[in-house]
Amino acid sequence: MKPEHRTYIRARSNLLIDVATFIAFLIATAPRLSGIGIHEWLGIAFAAAIIVHLLLHWQWIVALSKTMLRKARASSRLGYLLNLALFIDVTLLTFTGLMISEVALPLFGLRLPRGFLWRGLHSTTSNIAVLLIGLHLALHWQWVLKTTARIFGLVRPTAKPRQEVSQ
């Protein structure tokens, strides 16, 4: 398989996973629309999708972690700090969601005492997540547009594809 075709397939898979994760997040932010059961299971699936997302961009994370304090561009540093904040926020969002779970954990026989602190923190981290995901998307918007255009055949693949690590 040609390298450019491999890069295209990888970019397409990344985009599809990211779109599915984003849709799951959007639906999870509307528990009155989805119902509490779907809200909780989508939240758990969202956390799992974030792990997959991190694994897919592992090289970028490692490369930038090494050069973070030295040679990285300002935009890359900003992206790195934003992603770090997003990771912390999503971790807290998932954790507090599990702590106040009314469907998912009781299914496994786990019933935690009611915690209003976790409930408040869950709301706050959810609101912050909307902003951080918006900024995260904005940082990679050009990549999203280019990859979408390539998938729908609106542009021809370039001879020298962009390195995924720079994403």
Partner: peptide, 12 residues
């Protein structure tokens, strides 16, 4: 709720 979050992200 869903639309509100979508609009916020679109504006950002």
């Amino acid at each position: 709720e869903l639309l509100k979050n979508l609009v916020i992200i679109a504006v950002i």
